[in-house]
Design a protein around this nucleic acid. Structure first.
Lengths: 239, 239
DNA sequence: CCAAAAGTGTTATGTCTACACCCATGA
DNA sequence: TCATGGGTGTAGACATAACACTTTTGG
C-alpha cells in the first residue's frame, strides 16, 4: 500500500487475436509476418494497440476486422493476459489475448498481402517448426488449450463450420482439435440427442466423388447451457 | 495498421484479486473499504498497480500477500481482463483479475484493520445487498462463474479446506459453490473412486457436540488430469 | 438406549462404446 | 453391382441416483 497511485507506471496495452479455422481437415492459425523491428520478418499472431476510447472487446473486434475483413466473428473470446516485463524488448507491454474462430477460409487473407499472412497448422507452431515472435508461442499454446476446453463445454464447434454443415464436418472439428478419432455413429447420437442444438434443414449434401449416401445438412441451434453434447475424456484414443 | 506504435497510448495497469473462502458453510469474498476517492468508503476487491519489473502473476501474489499475509496461496488464477474506458473515472485503467482461494479464515484480515476489510457472503454481493466500487460487481460475478467451472474440472475444491479434511467438509464446498445438495453417500463414492485424489490419513475427526460417528480425515492427493471426481450438471437440485 | 452423523450395500435406471447391419449414392 | 460413406440397432460394460441399512460416537 506504500505505492503512490498518482505516480502510476505507464504501460502500453495491446490486444492480440489467435484466429483459428479448419482447413483440409486440420486446425490452422492465422499468422502475419512482422514488417518492422523487433522480430522483423518473423511470424506473429495479429494484434495492435488498444485505443483509449474503446473497450478491450472492441479493440479485439477491430483488430480481427483489420486482419481478415470479418466484422461479425462467429466467436471472439478473451482468454488471457500477458505482461512479463521482458516480453517486448522495446517497452513494457501488457497484451490481452483473444481467440477468434472462423469458418470462411477463402476470404481470410484478403485484407493483407498473401506474402504477409498465412494459415499455418497449429501443430507446426506447437512443434516449433514455425518460430513465433515475442511470447506468441505460449499464447497460441494457451489458446489451443482453451479451445479444447470450450469445445467440451460450449457450442464453439459450430463456429468452425459453415451456416449449414454435415455431422461428418462437425465431427472433424472435434477430431482435429482434440486429436482423437470418434465413432461416427455414437457422435451422431450424442449430438442429435442434445435437444435443439443442431437442427436438420431437410436438405442434403452432395456425396463426394467416390459416392456414398448423401449426408443430411444441419444448421446450428441455440447454444446449450449444460455443457456440450459430447465429452472429451473417457473416450479412448483409437489408432 | 495506420496507427503509430511509437506514439502508443499510455494506460495504468492494475491487478485485482477476488479472494474466496468458505466460512460458516457459505462462500465468502474478501472486500476492503476504499480509503480514498473515487468511491471513497465503498467496498471493493483488493488490488493495486502492477510494477514494471514484475510479471502479472507476481503482482497478484504480492497484492494477495499485502492484503492477507498469505504468501503461499492455495490457488491463484488469472481469469479476466477489464478495460472499459470509463471503468475508472480518473484515468484509463486496464485491470487483470485473479481468483485466490484460501482456507485459513482466522488470519485472513490480519494484514489490515478489521474495519477496513471483511469477509462477506458472495450471495450478498450478487444480490446487490452490498454495492461495490468500479466494475467490481461484474468481476466478482465472473470470478464465481469461473470457480464453478474449475470446481468441476480441477482439484480446486481442496484449496477451500484445510491440510486435512473430512469428506463432509469437502462436500460442503461443492454444495456452497454450486448451490446444490449432494447425496453424502454418492459423493463419497465419486471422490474416493477417483484414484489418488484424496488420501486417507488414518486419523479421525472429532464428532460434533451432538455425537455421530467420527469422520475419517483425508489429505489432498495429486490434482487429477481428467476432470474432477464429480460433475455439476445432471444432478438435481434438491430442496 | 436414543439421536446423530459416517460410511456401506443394493438396485433400478441411464449412458457409453463397439460393432454389426442397413441405406443411398457415384461410377 | 460394387465401393463408399451416411445412418440405425443393439448388447455388454459402466456410471449414477436414490435410499435402506450398518457403524460409531455423544448424551
Amino acid at each position: 500500500m506504500s505505492y503512490d497511485p498518482s505516480q502510476f507506471p505507464a504501460f502500453a496495452v495491446t490486444v492480440d487475436v489467435v484466429i483459428m479455422t479448419m482447413s483440409e481437415g486440420t486446425l490452422k492459425v492465422l499468422l502475419v509476418r512482422r514488417g518492422e523491428a523487433p522480430f522483423e520478418g518473423m511470424w506473429a499472431i495479429p494484434g495492435g494497440f488498444k485505443r483509449p476510447t474503446e473497450t478491450l472487446d472492441e479493440a479485439a473486434k477491430r483488430e480481427l476486422a483489420e486482419e481478415t475483413g470479418v466484422d461479425v466473428p462467429s466467436l471472439l473470446t478473451q482468454f488471457g493476459a500477458y505482461g512479463d516485463p521482458e516480453r517486448d524488448p522495446r517497452m513494457n507491454v501488457v497484451t490481452i489475448a483473444y481467440i477468434a474462430v472462423l469458418r470462411d477460409v477463402g476470404a481470410l487473407v484478403a485484407g493483407t498481402d498473401a506474402a504477409d499472412a498465412g494459415l499455418v497448422p497449429v501443430s507446426d507452431v506447437l512443434k516449433g517448426r514455425i518460430e513465433l515472435a515475442f511470447d506468441h508461442l505460449r499464447i497460441v499454446r494457451d489458446a489451443l488449450e482453451r479451445v479444447r476446453v470450450e469445445l467440451e463445454l460450449t457450442g464453439i464447434a459450430t463456429a468452425f463450420v459453415g451456416a449449414t454443415f454435415t455431422l461428418a464436418e462437425l465431427r472433424t472439428v472435434y477430431e482435429a482439435v482434440w486429436g482423437v478419432q470418434l465413432d461416427a455413429a455414437n457422435f451422431r447420437r450424442s449430438v442429435v440427442a442434445e435437444d435443439g442444438w443442431v437442427i436438420p434443414t431437410g436438405r442434403r449434401a452432395r456425396p463426394g466423388p467416390a459416392g456414398g449416401r448423401p449426408a443430411e445438412l444441419y444448421r446450428a441451434g441455440r447454444a446449450w447451457s449444460h455443457g456440450g453434447p459430447i465429452h472429451r475424456f473417457q473416450r479412448e484414443e483409437r489408432k
